[in-house]
Amino acid sequence: MSDGVPILKIGSTLLVSIQVDLQDDTALRLQEDLAERITRTGARGVIIDISGLEIVDSFIGRMLASVAAISHVLDATTVVVGMRPAVAITMVELGLSLGDVRTALDVERGLAMLRPEDRSAEEILLAAAEREEG
């Protein structure tokens, strides 16, 4: 078993940057870790940066689609960013689609795609409490 992929949290967004060639079990663990982190932190958005990936085969493709579906159930939006052109061409030829996964050119555009009202429950409650006080 190799080391897991680190998940960063920025505000109400979780950020994962896959930098190395993923082993199947590592990919599965990432999927589980993400589901767990979304529930624990109440994150509203997940950004998966795959600009470091040299290939996306059916296994990784399915993992990305699963994460998107799982996050959707948990009321969060997943954006896959940074897919390389050669990888995209290969995926299309392979017949692989990412389903309803949203995509963006890079992390910055991915962040912009997550709507500002997608704030965490905590932030909204705090804002409401402030209004109450004021």
């Binding site: 896959v80 897919m83 689609s97 995509t103």
Partner: peptide, 12 residues
């Protein structure tokens, strides 16, 4: 069509 789909995968 493939080009269009590939572009979408990349976020364009």
């Amino acid at each position: 069509l493939k080009t269009v789909v590939a572009a979408r995968l990349m976020g364009a």
